[in-house]
Write a protein that binds this DNA or RNA. Structure first.
Lengths: 137, 137
DNA sequence: GCCAAGTTCACCCGTTCGGGCGATTGCCAG
DNA sequence: CTGGCAATCGCCCGAACGGGTGAACTTGGC
């Protein structure tokens, strides 16, 4: 975030310097006038477009998962969340057990708790619920 | 789409008229100068930001489902698609059978074909693949 | 007419899943 | 220190799922 602010600050500073140079050129040549004005307008137009895209277009695809509100409301523990993500990735209990370095029995326990908290009877249903709640992308 | 283009055209025309008016003012007052330049720059900056946001921020939510290309590429039949949607909705074979008014055995057959075509071994994996291909939302 | 493809259903068998119950360990708050 | 909670693992059993195979029947096209 601060990197971005500093970056744009530097950009504006560079723009200001450029303007001062242009101003100098203008004084020297006495009224190059409209061309100069056009250049300034174009430059700021481009700058504006870049700013608009970079600043306001970014948050759109960042409607990121892991909705903390839903997680808290359901009382999902950290380990359960990990299992839930593996679940949504389409892995079997055995695979999840391997990925998390635990026994398949443990995974079964976590999955069972997830079913309770999500109000699901099947893992496919649990995935659907988790997606509806925005916990999983 | 054309409405947008026309709208921005009108906006630019209005901006041009405003500029001509400002130009007139400048000639009258002889070198209001830097303030004028600043105003032009600011106006174009704002215009640029608006353009950037309006044009490039929108297309995010337009990632619709039912991708016909993927469906054709995989050779999914109509019935298989119906089963696939039920599958992604988190229903069991028995429930799908009831919804489609067929035998659970039939559903099993369709699901097995879906696994072949989607390259999946579990129904959760099939759901994931279908989502990646944009066949289901 | 006959072939191809889609849809439908059936049976067997092995694996996975889900429910239920119990148990241990570690940590943190009261 | 004691009770609660999360995490871990085990076992049993029934239900659901998945693989394999076979077989009708319909529909559209060659």
């Amino acid at each position: 975030m601060w990197k971005r602010v500093v970056g744009y600050g530097a950009l504006l500073a560079a723009g200001t310097l450029a303007l001062q140079w242009l101003d100098y050129q203008r004084l020297v040549r006495m009224h190059a006038g409209d061309v100069y004005l056009f250049l300034v307008a174009a430059a700021f137009l481009v700058l504006g477009i870049v700013l608009g895209v970079r600043v306001f277009a970014a948050p759109a695809p960042t409607a990121f998962d892991g909705n903390p509100k839903a997680q808290a409301a359901l009382g999902l523990s950290g380990r359960e969340l990990e299992v839930l993500h593996e679940l949504a990735a389409g892995h079997s209990n055995k695979e999840i057990a391997a990925h998390l370095h635990v026994s398949p029995n443990t995974v079964k326990t976590h999955v069972a708790r997830l079913f309770e908290k999500l109000g699901a009877k099947r893992r496919t249903e649990a995935i659907r619920r988790a997606r509806e709640l925005g916990i999983v992308p």
